[in-house]
Structures are given as structure tokens and as C-alpha cells.
């Protein structure tokens, strides 16, 4: 745990020492602000103190930004040789990946924390379902964690960060859009159920609606663990 803590601190220090992270935050808030307050579907048009559409927008922005955030995490370490430096210190592959995963989750968490003023503003405009908002944020954290683990996997599998971005985006799109589309195309039967179950957006929407189902949480945890395990496999493959 101590080693993971040191790695998280180093990752965060490096991230906040560069302009890229602030540009990412700026982009995130510009798009969020536009979608929430200025777009044709803004909260005033909807006429309800509801954050559900807003969470869907955040989910999509996070989807694109997180892949860009995660793409260089392991690929750059491999390219610069610092992976060799770290793994010949008392650091295991799991600790290294856990450090990267947690630090990126913290970066995303900070972005989500900074959207709280939206919640307080809407609270002043009408009666809100606080439980649904809480679950919406919970769902966003879980989906972001899934994107991060997919990003880490792609970054471990790819040689360069740009190829990592495309692998991660492709895998992410499968979970976010493709599986849901396939499920709706097939309509019935076990295959449709399987694709429906694999679709990440289905599970997110369920949480976003304010329904806490342990199956959704288990699904998210399984995706996170699966892709982190694959990332570990790929990093170690490089060493065999």
C-alpha cells in the first residue's frame, strides 16, 4: 500500500506540473457548461431540476478525455525505458498499475467534484432527487474507472501512446455503443441478452435513473478487474 501511495503521489505531482491536465479540465468544463446551460437541450428548456441528462453528457466527455489521459501511462514508460527503472526497484507490476489507476481516478474525481456547483445551483432552482444525483455520481465514477482500466490495458498492449489511444477508444466504443446496438438489433434470445449485459451504457443508465442494482456494480467491478488483469499480463509479457 505504501508503495502504491508513493506512486500515486508521483503521478499526481507530474500530472499537475504539466499544462495538459489544466487544458483537459478546461475543455471538460467548457463542454459541460455549454451542454448544461447553453445548448438547445439545456436545463431551462427541460424545466426540471434533474441532473440525469447532464450526467449523460459528462459520461460522454469523460469517455473521450480519459482515453487521452490514459494512453501514455504505460506506453510512454515503455518507450522511455522508465518501466525498466521502476520494475528493478522494489515495485511490482500490480503496484505500478494500481498507482496509475488510482492517480487517474483521483484526477477524474477532482473533475467530478468541480461539477458540484451545478448540483447546488439546480438545488436552488427546484426540488431534486438527491439519491438519484448521488447514484449518478457513483455511476460516473464507476464508468470512469472502467475507461481508465481499458486505457491502461491499451497503453500496456501498445508500443506508442497514439496506437494506445486508438485501441482504447475502439475497445471503449465497443462497450459504450456497439454492444448496446447489437443487443437492440438482435432483439431477443440469449445472444441479445449477452450483448445487453455487456453494454456499459445500459448499466450506467440504470444507475443514472437512480436504481442501485448490485448486478450493475458487479458488472463495473468485473470490467475494471478484467482490463487491469489484462494490462498486468501485457506488462509482464514484455518481461518474459
Amino acid at each position: 500500500m505504501r508503495t502504491i501511495g508513493i506512486l500515486i503521489r508521483k503521478e499526481l505531482e507530474n500530472a499537475f506540473n504539466s499544462w495538459a491536465i489544466y487544458t483537459g479540465y478546461l475543455l471538460f468544463f467548457c463542454v459541460c457548461g455549454f451542454a448544461c446551460w447553453l445548448s438547445p437541450d439545456n436545463v431551462f428548456v427541460l424545466g426540471q431540476a434533474d441532473m440525469t441528462p447532464f450526467f449523460t453528457v459528462i459520461n460522454w466527455i469523460a469517455f473521450f478525455i480519459i482515453h487521452a489521459l490514459a494512453m501514455k501511462s504505460v506506453a510512454d514508460e515503455k518507450k522511455n525505458g522508465t518501466l525498466e527503472l521502476l520494475l528493478t526497484k522494489p515495485v511490482t507490476t500490480s503496484q505500478l498499475l494500481a498507482g496509475k489507476f488510482c492517480s487517474q481516478l483521483i484526477i477524474v474525481g477532482i473533475a467530478l467534484l468541480l461539477t458540484l456547483p451545478y448540483y447546488f445551483t439546480l438545488m436552488g432552482l427546484g426540488a431534486m432527487d438527491h439519491g438519484a444525483v448521488l447514484l449518478g455520481y457513483f455511476g460516473l465514477i464507476l464508468t470512469s474507472a472502467c475507461y481508465i482500466s481499458i486505457g491502461l490495458f491499451a497503453s500496456s498492449a501498445a508500443k506508442t501512446s497514439i496506437s494506445a489511444f486508438f485501441i482504447s477508444l475502439g475497445t471503449g466504443l465497443c462497450f459504450q455503443v456497439l454492444f448496446g446496438l447489437l443487443a437492440s438489433q438482435i432483439h431477443f434470445g440469449p445472444v441479445a441478452d449477452l450483448f445487453g449485459f455487456l453494454s456499459l451504457s445500459e448499466h450506467f443508465e440504470s444507475l443514472n435513473r437512480g436504481v442501485l442494482d448490485t448486478r450493475d456494480v458487479l458488472y463495473f467491478l468485473s470490467v475494471i478487474v478484467l482490463f487491469l488483469a489484462l494490462a498486468r499480463l501485457y506488462v509482464n509479457k514484455y518481461r518474459y
Binding site: N14, N80, P90
Partner: peptide, 29 residues
């Protein structure tokens, strides 16, 4: 790994860190 000091061939370092921060990080690891 605790007992070995290793300088790899191409001397990989974290370029964005300053010397003291880097050594501090390695010492803590």
C-alpha cells in the same frame, strides 16, 4: 531488488522531474 542498484543502458529518467524530487521519489520507493 532491495539490495541491487541498477543503472540501465540508456539511463532512463523522469525528465519532467527535478533532480531532488526524482532522488526523493527513488529513496521513498
Amino acid at each position: 531488488r532491495q539490495h541491487i542498484g541498477y543503472l540501465p543502458e540508456h539511463n532512463p529518467l523522469y525528465d519532467e522531474m527535478n533532480v531532488i524530487d526524482f532522488l526523493h521519489f527513488i529513496a521513498r520507493i
